[in-house]
Simulated scan of single mutants.
Amino acid sequence: MTLKTRIQEDMKTAMKARETDRLAAIRLLIAAIKQKEVDEQTELDDGAVVAVIEKMLKQRRDSVSQYEAAGRQDLADREKSEMAVLSAYMPQPLSEVEVDTLIAEAVGATGAASMQDMGKVMAWLKPRLAGRADMGQVSGRIKAKLAG
């Protein structure tokens, strides 16, 4: 079953169970997926759906920090509940050891020797880590490895 099909099925289940908050989050996700398909005029595969979910999660994280800074805990809580629903569709995250192993493999495969080769390493890693690691943290680890 594709990820998109699973999301559709979960929407039906949430409707039947009258889980309004979960249903709202799933509907937002489906709308974002459909919008991306219309924009690109193509059917999204699981990788592209994960990219849409990652973008939505990042938006929610930013919103939570802004709402909390403004003292709007009610809105922050709603964003957090949406994040919990969206996170369920993300692939299993990699451990730090697995990420470090992949970074070492990428450095070897690309022949990276200095910070100038950072782009090559990131390009090699990005498809392998999509949705499974925070690329911001991975970038910092690559810099540390190439600098040291």
Rank of each mutant, 00 (worst) to 15 (best):
I142Y: 03
M83I: 01
S63E: 10
D77F: 15
M122N: 07
T20Y: 05
V97S: 06
I53S: 05
D10P: 15
L23V: 00
A112T: 07
R78D: 11
E19F: 12
T42F: 05
S114E: 10
K4A: 02
D21L: 04
L125Y: 14
E79C: 07
A112M: 08
T42S: 12
E96N: 09
A70W: 07
A69P: 10
Y89L: 04
Q35F: 06
E79P: 03
S95A: 03
Q66Y: 14
L44A: 00
V138Y: 06
M118T: 09
L129A: 02
S63G: 04
Q59E: 15
K145H: 11
K16D: 09
V99E: 14
R18Y: 01
A84M: 10
L3V: 11
A84I: 07
A104C: 03
G111M: 06
D10M: 12
Q73I: 05
S87Q: 11
D39G: 08
Q41R: 12
G111C: 02
T5Q: 05
I53L: 05
D134G: 04
M15V: 04
S139K: 08
T20F: 11
A84W: 09
R132Y: 13
V38R: 08
Q73H: 10
K58G: 13
T101V: 04
V49D: 13
E82N: 09
L102F: 09
V85Y: 07
T110Q: 01
I142R: 00
G119P: 07
A51I: 07
G148P: 10
G136V: 01
D62I: 12
Q41N: 15
R61M: 11
E9Y: 08
A25C: 04
G111H: 06
K143H: 01
A104E: 13
M90I: 03
D21W: 05
A133W: 11
G131W: 01
M11L: 14
R18C: 01
A84D: 03
A25D: 02
R72V: 05
V138E: 07
E96A: 04
V97T: 14
E82H: 14
K58E: 14
P93N: 00
M118Y: 12
D10E: 15
E96P: 07
A70K: 10
M122Q: 04
E19L: 01
A69W: 14
R141P: 10
L129D: 03
Q73T: 13
A88F: 07
Q66G: 03
A133L: 09
R18N: 01
K34D: 12
E96L: 06
L28Q: 13
M90F: 02
E54G: 02
P93H: 04
E19Q: 06
A88S: 13
I103Q: 00
Q66D: 14
R78Q: 15
R141K: 04
T20V: 02
A14D: 03
A84S: 02
A144Y: 10
L75C: 05
